[in-house]
Design a binder for these strands. Structure first.
Ligand code: MN
Ligand code: MN
Ligand code: ZN
Ligand code: ZN
Lengths: 154, 154
DNA sequence: CGCATTTTTGCAACTGTGTTGCATTTTTTC
DNA sequence: GAAAAAATGCAACACAGTTGCAAAAATGCG
């Protein structure tokens, strides 16, 4: 028999929560599942839509609270994009990483690799805790697919 | 007689606008004056308060529109802080510079100096336009003045 | 289990930043 | 000076996120 070899997203999510000794509430598990499946950081709105599409919409406030809780636990982190919307993604091992924000579709990606850049010179008295690096540009999809329909202007 | 040797902020602001061949409207001049006098980037709110304190409050929408216009002209630039609020400051010569956001008072400063950091490695197909670097920490004032009243815990 | 305590959840109302529509005023153009 | 364009003011709106409070789980303990 082969009953165990499929570690579902649900299982992964539950495990992450139990590792922290926290109760695996449905909302938390569901949010983590969605984040585990995501290829880019997700906004509150996209999480709500994804959950609703799955037939289990969550309450707006509950979702905000779950996200805040997950961030406080260090399980996820959030980045505010240019549209002033926070996007959330799993906090993976690599503690310091840069981000990429696509100016076309607005998606935000966590980049792998160390960001060895030296801290810029600070004015006297200033204390640095952390350096955030965000690359702006076009993601692979948007770079490959121009705005369509434009062939005469060049 | 010595009537000319005082280049006021008002004059500087007006000059900046005339250089662009733009009309120096009162709102634009006033916003530029405030930004010229500021030591940190200013939010819409702080600009409104500063203007109101000076006895000439501006209309909320007009201020937003002036800021958008100034940004479109390249005279100012805006950065969204962790609180999702945009802060504006004069666009000085140095085209690429890093920013500093104080986690205590929330103020945002433009840092001088080139930010020579190499672009982080991007996934295949991704195109980089610009790299934003923001240092998070405590500004000189906040680093010097601890939250007060705490002397027994250490 | 039975019951008190703590944690989560749900809903409504609210805050704050920023936008849109439209009418009025000011500036520029001819 | 009149027509056209640019700038302003006000009200209503959009939208991310928060707060207060009560109902519903989950937990702890005898
Ligand atoms: Mn990330
Ligand atoms: Mn700057
Ligand atoms: Zn894209
Ligand atoms: Zn500070």
């Amino acid at each position: 028999m082969q009953a165990a070899p499929a570690p579902t997203r649900h299982d992964q999510a539950t495990r992450l929560l139990h590792q922290r000794g926290a109760t695996a509430t449905p909302a938390r598990v569901r949010v983590l599942q969605l984040l585990l499946a995501a290829d880019a950081a997700m906004s509150h709105q996209s999480l709500q839509q994804a959950a609703a599409a799955g037939g289990h919409p969550f309450d707006k406030v509950t979702l905000y609270r779950v996200l805040d809780w997950l961030a406080a636990q260090g399980l996820v982190h959030s980045v505010a994009g240019h549209d002033r919307v926070r996007r959330f993604s799993l906090m993976n091992a690599h503690h310091a990483h840069a981000h990429f924000e696509c100016g076309v579709c607005g998606r935000l990606f966590c980049l792998r690799g160390s960001l060895a850049s030296a801290t810029p010179e600070l004015p006297p008295g200033f204390v640095s805790d952390r350096v955030d690096i965000t690359v702006h540009g076009r993601c692979a999809e948007c770079a490959a697919a121009p705005p369509a329909s434009e062939a005469s202007e060049e």
